[in-house]
Nucleic acid binder design. Structure first.
Length: 595
RNA sequence: GCGCCCGUAGCUCAGCUGGAUAGAGCACGAGACUUCUAAUCUUGAGGCCGCAGGUUCGACUCCUGCCGGGCGCACCA
């Protein structure tokens, strides 16, 4: 028989950063019951329990927990689901924390817990504090997440913002679920774009030396941000390179310009609270001979061959010429076409270097994640093919595509023109609405859905704005805390939680879902789920708060009822803790009070 | 032509990686509150989950084929 000791000391069973939740606890109970049924010969041994789930039912009237165990195992066990459920349910009902377990529908087992189990969960939240919800799901697993990786040719603009936030929040989420995370930025400092940058800087350099450069020519970067770089070069080198051949200065100017741009970019990322620990250089990948090594390896396995590409269809190219190139057999891994890794002049294609770079990353991580703009969707298959080929499919690899953000002001789309350099910079937006608003808002939609960012709406103080609504819930909790202190009410310690009513316990039940939401979000690589969950939690808290409008005796602070007040404050503290933990994953600071 | 993403209430979007009667906000209908725990609250109506098959005890979710919208299809980055 399973140990029927219930959940009496779960609050203290927080260990190794992992929260034991009611759900995981019952998953364990059910596993033990199945073990006993196997030993007794009531179930065949070795059944696949992978799909057995313990979840909150969507309809709260079905109880607190529901399990599909009987339905999942019925067929392989050669039993009727309801009959199997009838065998298991009474064994579940035997636990102290269970008030009832009944079979419902096609074979669900609905479990109703005693109220004390939820009071216990509230204590567990308080005991675990900022660790509540952490899990060991990713223990021992290293994840490399590469995001932003904007070309080092200028400051970040809003096009980069969403990927930056999604990547950083996903990194935080994976850390929360126990993964060892490396945040990485790939500097594209080896292509034609950085040569153009160097030439643009050279122009600014001549300008700094007093030359009249007139209009910035078509094809160069016109931005003012290159002026200080030109000035610095003028100060360092004088007019040494003013009239010399490009070959004399190109590499030097490229190096200086890229370094300066990366300083700008790092500063921009800093405004969002982002600090990646690895900045990997494409040029360094080249210099280290990584593409050559990858090519040799792939040729050995006949995954690279010399061949001729077909002309692209559906598109007429005047200057198309069939050329023999070294091609990677990405079609073998599901791509539509084999892809060249070198150009006809023998130099590496972007893909050729990127392939080698991903191989490099895979050597220090069990799982790779790339965050890309949706405009790169067409290249996902080839890089996935490359990672699979180079790692023999041993490295998990996910490319997360992030859709465009449309900026709106007064309901009208903000016009942006790269040509004139009049894009809205990330720094401008952060300065206008604040880091936390930007970060939260970027997570209010799933990454692969388009999003509008309306300057007015994101700072609106109403329940329509989830950023505000979640922060407001936290501010209310902190406010009531301060008032309680001012009135000399002792917070913390042993509150009598039996004074909490059913509606208040319902809020605890919502809070108790946080750990499984975090795990599910981490598994799906979808940090936006945290934002949606916090919105739901906040709404439920506000509803509870609003009870106090019509019924003063239902307020959190009730005069002349210190014990009741203490119990309700304990509840509020628990909710506040969940909000802080969720916001921390998103990289957003919880506020103490609203403006 | 091929590939990828999307299609859920009038609108904007969720839907916990296959669970029970598909959810929220806005807008709409009805009511409450003239206050300070209302930078509102309660409640109602609203659905062929693009269409058609298939897998399954069970499908918005997975598979196939259509329809419709967006993006991509260079040795660019």
């Amino acid at each position: 028989m399973p140990d029927a000791s219930g959940s009496s000391n779960r609050a203290s069973s927080h260990k190794q950063g992992q929260t034991v939740t009611i759900y995981s606890e019952f998953a364990g109970h059910i596993g033990a019951i199945l073990d006993h049924l196997e030993e007794a010969g009531d179930l065949p041994a070795g059944l696949d329990r992978k799909n057995v789930a313990v979840e909150p039912p969507r309809d709260p009237s079905h109880g607190d927990l529901a399990t599909n165990v009987a339905m999942v195992l019925a067929k392989p066990a050669g039993k009727n689901p309801r009959e199997l459920a009838m065998i298991i349910a009474p064994k579940i009902a035997r636990f102290d924390s269970v008030a009832g377990a009944e079979v419902a529908g096609p074979g669900f087992i609905n479990i109703r817990l005693v109220d004390d189990a939820w009071r216990e969960e509230l204590r567990a939240i308080a005991a675990a504090g900022e660790n509540y919800g952490r899990s060991a799901m990713g223990a021992g697993k290293t994840v490399n997440i590469e995001y932003v990786s904007a070309n080092p040719t200028g400051p970040l603009h809003m096009g980069h913002c969403r990927g930056a936030v999604v990547g950083d929040a996903l990194a935080g989420l994976l850390e929360f679920t126990g993964h060892a995370v490396t945040r990485e930025y790939y500097i594209n400092d080896a292509g034609g774009q950085v040569d153009i940058l160097a030439r643009s800087t050279h122009l600014r350099y001549r300008e700094a030396l007093g030359e009249d450069i007139g209009e910035i020519p078509e094809g160069l970067y016109p931005g003012e941000y290159l002026k200080p770089v030109g000035e610095a070069l003028a100060a360092e080198f004088g007019d040494r390179y003013a009239a010399s051949e490009e070959t004399q200065w190109l590499a030097l100017f490229r190096e200086h310009s890229v370094a300066a741009m990366m300083d700008l970019i790092r500063a921009d990322l800093g405004l969002l609270g982002i600090a990646q620990e690895v900045f990997a250089s494409e040029a360094a990948v080249h210099a280290a001979g990584k593409p050559e090594a990858a090519e040799a390896e792939l040729r050995k396995r006949d995954l690279v061959y010399d061949g001729i590409l077909e002309a692209p269809k559906g598109k007429t190219l005047d200057d198309w010429e069939p050329v023999e190139l070294p091609l990677f057999r990405s079609t073998r891994f599901g791509d539509d076409q084999d892809r060249p890794i070198r150009k006809s002049d023998g130099s590496w294609t972007y893909f050729g270097a990127d392939l080698a770079y991903h191989f490099q990353k895979s050597q220090s991580a069990d799982m790779l994640i790339d965050i890309w703009g949706a405009d790169h969707a067409g290249t996902v298959k080839r890089i996935k093919a490359a990672v699979e080929a180079l790692t023999d499919g041993k490295t998990e690899f996910d490319v997360k595509l992030v859709q465009m953000v449309r900026l709106l002001r007064d309901g009208e789309p903000v016009k942006m023109s790269k040509r004139s350099g009049s894009f809205v910079t990330l720094a401008d937006v952060v300065e206008e609405v604040g880091k936390d608003v930007v970060r939260f808002t970027m997570l209010t939609r799933k990454a692969d859905a388009q999003m509008d960012f309306d300057f007015a709406k994101v700072v609106e103080a109403s329940k329509d704005n989830p950023v505000f609504y979640v922060q407001y819930a936290h501010a209310r909790i902190r406010s009531v805390h301060r008032r309680a202190q001012a009135e000399g009410i002792e917070i913390g310690g042993a509150a009598d939680l039996s004074l909490l009513d059913a509606e208040e316990l319902a809020l605890v039940k919502r809070a108790a879902q946080f750990p499984r939401i975090a795990e599910a979000a981490a598994n799906a690589h979808e940090p936006h789920r945290i934002a949606f969950y916090l919105g739901d939690l906040a709404a439920e808290f506000h509803a509870l708060w609003n009870r106090g409008n019509d019924h003063p005796e239902k307020r959190l602070l009730v005069a002349d009822a210190p014990d009741l007040t203490r119990a309700r404050l304990a509840l509020a503290e628990g909710i506040g803790q969940i909000i802080r933990n969720g916001l921390a994953i998103m990289g957003v600071e919880a506020v103490e009070e609203m403006e």
